[in-house]
Amino acid sequence: MTPPRTLRVDRIACTGRGLCSELLPELIDLDEWGYPILKDRTVPDRLRAHTRRAVAACPRLALHVDDGLGRRAQRARGLTVRVSGRPRGRATTGMGGRR
């Protein structure tokens, strides 16, 4: 059995172009300003390919699909885990490396 995949929208990154709704009308509606409203966050198996296409086509990279695995399970399967945060190393201001 495959873990459930969930769809999510980064509302800050989204600019309301509506392409996701055109590619995935089964799961996404648009509000009156053109921003996506998820009908259902869980992605059925029959819509996986359409969901991947909609995520890849988002011009602002605001549409994401999570595979339902936790970080520990992703590491065990050899998948990369991206953790947001400040990059490691020496921080510079762009002025010759001085702070």
Rank of each mutant, 00 (worst) to 15 (best):
R99I: 07
R71K: 13
R52K: 08
V81E: 12
T42M: 11
R5K: 14
S84V: 01
R75Q: 05
C58F: 09
G97C: 05
L79A: 09
G16M: 08
G89I: 03
R5G: 06
A73E: 15
A54V: 06
C14F: 10
A73Y: 02
V83K: 12
G89N: 03
D10L: 07
P25N: 03
L69H: 03
L47R: 00
L63M: 13
L27F: 09
G96L: 04
P87E: 02
A13K: 12
A54F: 06
M1T: 00
T15G: 11
R99P: 01
P4W: 00
D10W: 04
T15F: 14
E32S: 13
C14A: 04
I37V: 12
V65I: 11
R53D: 13
L19G: 00
L69E: 09
R82G: 02
T42A: 11
D29L: 09
Y35S: 02
R77G: 15
A56N: 12
S21Y: 12
A76V: 10
T42Y: 09
A54I: 05
A91I: 13
R90F: 15
D31K: 01
D40F: 04
T80H: 10
G16D: 12
R88E: 14
A73V: 03
R99D: 07
R86H: 12
P25C: 02
V65P: 08
D31G: 02
R41M: 09
R77Y: 09
T6G: 00
C20A: 06
G70N: 04
A91D: 10
T2E: 14
R82Q: 10
P36I: 07
D67E: 08
E32H: 12
R98D: 08
R86I: 10
G78V: 05
R88V: 12
T92G: 09
S21Q: 15
A54H: 04
R88N: 08
P4E: 02
P25T: 01
A54T: 04
G97Q: 01
T51Y: 11
T92N: 01
C58E: 06
P3L: 09
L69K: 06
C14W: 07
R90G: 13
K39E: 06
R41G: 15
R8E: 03
S21P: 07
W33D: 15
W33C: 07
A76K: 14
H64N: 06
R48A: 12
T2W: 05
R48K: 12
G16N: 10
R60E: 14
G18R: 07
R60A: 13
A73C: 02
E32M: 08
R8Y: 02
I37M: 09
P3R: 11
A49Q: 15
A76C: 04
G96T: 03
